[in-house]
Structures are given as structure tokens and as C-alpha cells.
Design a protein around this nucleic acid. Structure first.
Lengths: 137, 137
DNA sequence: CAATTAAAGATAAAATGAATCTATAATTAA
DNA sequence: TTAATTATAGATTCATTTTATCTTTAATTG
């Protein structure tokens, strides 16, 4: 019942990219330094975000990463699913006999909870974080 | 973003205990056989439920486990916290400078999501599972 | 006292998470 | 075209957590 550190790094990277209003690409070294991380490690996380279509990457001299969508359209759910994957909260592997339903009732109940959670995560956006930041003078 | 197998075992054990309407204690061997688990492993999980006050255990000849509360008062949240612990979904360890709030905004946002999730988990009970089971003739 | 049953401890195997290093491919600028 | 820059991918390592077993101990009943 915990998200990985990678997810936290990913969310922070998204915010950093969103804060960058120049439309130049930001290199992984810059992002890694700000979070005090090894660039290669963060790179793997950013690649996941890239494959999920949240950011785009350009190699080469003036390359780096850029947001693809507007911060309003980047939800926590998007980022979390990109890094954590799409497996469900609880996956019952037991065989249930007659007294239970065909599909495990516990699993089905957890699935309802998961749907609500996703709804909630979808309502939180990167833009929402930006809007809470103290004004920079 | 997944619950452990132990949590699934715990939830199933709770349901099994709730289904037992005789007020005799149920031994770990019985519960373990039904879930095809090693008794000693399940025992550790049941001990957590016991320490959390959800079930009680009596050693000795006619001993075993019993529910403490009624199934209506046993929520998924209770069981999950007993097995998974009480750590929060996301714990940001980074240091945030001026542009961020003192407490990480991402962490704070995730905390809101977590609260909603807990609310949802608290609304799901063991009794709710029993009520969905097909009538036994 | 003997049988039964849960609890605790030690340990181990397996899976996952976190991270680094090296090599490769792509792009830009000179 | 060449050199510098930058992302990607692969192999590998280390640490942590999960899952599980075995053994011993403690408590309870008859």
C-alpha cells in the first residue's frame, strides 16, 4: 500500500517540466541534480513517462524532455500508471467453491475501491500543484 | 500500488471466521487448509489481526480464533491496516526550497487521495461480503 | 500429566525496488 | 563530415520486502 520512490521522482519531474515556461527541452542532468538523483536512473523513469505519452524526448545537442500536454491535462493517475503499471490492487488467485461467487467477492469489492481511487487520482493534476505554489517574485 | 498476498489471506480468513456461526474457535489448520496455505505462515498473519483487536485467539485443546466484533464492524480498512501497516501512500523525502511549500505539495495531494481511499475502504465490511454470497441451502 | 494449539524466533528463498555503469543511437552545431 | 551532446537500452549489483518453512516455547484443556 505504498507507491514507489520512482513514482515520487516522476511526479516531481513532471512538476519541474511544467514550471519551465520557456519551451526549451530540459536535460536529464538538470532534472537529476534538482532531485539529487543519478541521471541514468532518472532517465529510465522519464523513458516510462515518454512511452506513456506524457513527455517527449529529443536526443542530441539541444535535446532533453518537454511536456506533451498542458499541465491541466496531466493527472496524477496518468503519471502513476506510467510508473507503477496497470495491475490491480488485489488479485485473488484462490479457487472459490459454491459458497462464493465465481469471481472472488473480496476482489470485486477491492476493484470498486480501486475505481474510486482512480477517479480521485484523475482529479489531481500537475496544474493543481503549480497553482498551490507560492508566487515567485 | 498493490496489496500483499498476506492481506488477501487476512481478508479471506476474516470472512471464513464470520461465516462460522457456531461460537467455537476455529483452528489455524482449518483456515490454512481452506486457503491451501502453510499453517505457520497463516498464523503470523492471524497474529497481526489479533494484535489489532479484530480477532481473539485462545491456545490449548479447544482453542483457535474467533471474531471479536460483529462482521458489520469489521471494515476492509481495519484488516488492511492490520496487515499492511500504517505508512502513508507516498512519503516525500526531498528537500523543497522556496518555490515549494514547506511540506511537499505532491505529498499533501497524495494524502488527500489517501484519505478518500481510507473512507472508501472503511465503508466496505466483512458483513458486506457475506451479504453478497449465494444462499446456502 | 498429556495432548493440543497459538506465538515467537531463526532462517531462507524469491521477488521487487533502487541504483550504477557501460555501450549505443540519434541529433545538432561547427 | 566530424565532434560534442544527449537520450536509450542492456547488464549488473545491492538492498529491501515478501513469502514461506522449521523449530521451539508457552498456554490451555481434559
Amino acid at each position: 500500500m505504498k507507491f514507489s520512490k520512482a513514482t515520487n521522482y516522476a511526479l516531481h519531474s513532471m512538476v519541474h517540466l511544467a514550471m519551465d515556461n520557456t519551451n526549451e527541452a530540459v536535460g536529464v542532468d538538470t532534472l537529476a541534480q534538482r532531485q539529487k538523483l543519478s541521471p541514468t536512473y532518472l532517465s529510465k523513469i522519464l523513458t516510462k513517462l515518454s512511452k506513456a505519452g506524457l513527455i517527449e524526448s529529443t536526443p542530441g545537442v539541444k535535446g532533453g524532455y518537454r511536456l506533451v500536454r498542458s499541465p491541466e491535462n496531466c493527472s496524477f493517475l496518468d503519471v502513476i500508471q506510467a510508473t507503477e503499471g496497470y495491475e490491480s490492487l488485489l488479485n485473488c488467485t484462490m479457487s472459490h467453491d459454491g459458497k462464493w461467487s465465481q469471481t472472488c467477492l473480496i476482489e470485486r469489492t477491492m476493484s470498486e475501491v480501486e475505481d474510486k481511487m482512480k477517479e480521485e487520482l484523475a482529479s489531481k493534476t500537475i496544474a493543481g500543484i503549480l497553482s498551490q505554489m507560492p508566487e515567485k517574485n
